[in-house]
């Protein structure tokens, strides 16, 4: 059994090598970073255009939406940077190369995910931080030390929600031949996480709160900072949701890993 410290050291060693290898393709890195930057700002652009025609969207001003958006961009970054290898899982499972991950005395999820470190995701993270700071200055938010701690805690939990949704979708690869559409759907849904959940009603709000809890990626936790005096009690569950969902994901992953029989070649 390895300690957390061992894992951190190991991760550092693996990623240093990985980054060195990636840096051979510098042009690709620069173009990809630009692409990442534009694609992560697309929905914000939509908000900007829409809020040019109307004063508020379901009670939220443009700057409040910008805050939620900044929160969202930071919250999805750990998924992008640390768990990006999930996209390759269907190839590994189909071609049998997934077997190699069984042969090291390491946690398999750790070993599998450590094979990729998405550098361009750092652009997204940086942009998210800038946007969040900008919006909180414009909104005149009061940052005390406990509130900053609360922000970090909620961001941590929100990023676990995003990681869980995507990894769960990727785990479909263990049971169906082509998991790409499942992942694609999860990816498409992700774009709706920064929308104010109160525009939905009935079944949709229920789904995005309890079944595919997209609301916990950005909208619910952001309320703690945007309107602390008027927070629905759901919001206080957001740290629990992240950890609980990740535990479920880990359980499903383990199930999938144990049921995988290779390709026979």
């Amino acid at each position: 059994m390895h300690s957390l410290k061992d894992y951190l050291r190991l991760y550092f060693i693996i990623e240093t090598q990985y980054i060195k290898a990636r840096m051979q393709y510098r042009a690709d890195f620069i173009i990809s970073s630009i692409g990442m930057f534009f694609s992560s700002l697309a929905t914000l652009g939509i908000f900007w255009v829409i809020l040019g025609s109307i004063p508020d969207l379901a009670g939220w001003s443009f700057m409040q939406l910008v805050f939620i958006y900044g929160f969202y961009m930071i919250a999805i970054s750990p998924m992008q940077i640390l768990f990006d290898h999930i996209w390759q899982i269907r190839f590994h499972v189909q071609q049998g190369t997934f077997l190699k991950y069984y042969f090291r005395p390491l946690n398999m999820m750790f070993y599998y995910m450590s094979e990729m470190f998405d550098i361009k995701g750092l652009t997204q993270l940086a942009a998210g931080i800038v946007i969040l700071i900008y919006a909180s200055i414009r909104l005149d938010l009061d940052w005390t030390l406990p509130r900053v701690a609360l922000l970090l805690l909620t961001l941590f939990s929100a990023s676990l929600v995003q990681i869980s949704i995507t990894v769960l979708a990727g785990c479909a690869a263990f049971w169906v031949l082509d998991a790409y559409p499942v992942l694609g759907l999860a990816w498409k849904l992700r774009e709706f996480a920064p929308y104010p959940m109160n525009i939905f009603d009935g079944a949709f709000r229920f789904t995005f709160t309890f079944i595919i809890p997209l609301g916990f990626v950005a909208f619910y936790p952001s309320q703690l900072f945007l309107q602390p005096e008027d927070v629905s009690s759901l919001v206080y569950f957001s740290p629990l949701v992240g950890v609980g969902l990740f535990a479920l994901t880990y359980w499903v992953w383990t199930k999938g890993v144990n049921s995988y029989t290779g390709t026979g070649s």
């Binding site: 393709y25 042009a27 690709d28 620069i30 173009i31 990809s32 970073s33 630009i34 692409g35 990442m36 534009f38 694609s39 697309a42 652009g45 939509i46 255009v49 829409i50 040019g52 025609s53 361009k120």
Partner: peptide, 28 residues
Amino acid sequence: TESVWGLSITKEILVTVLSGALIPLPFF
């Protein structure tokens, strides 16, 4: 470039946003 991800994503975003695929152009 021999790599496609960044180019393709950038093109896709430019096309979808500037073509009015998501919002009708009069809203701009």
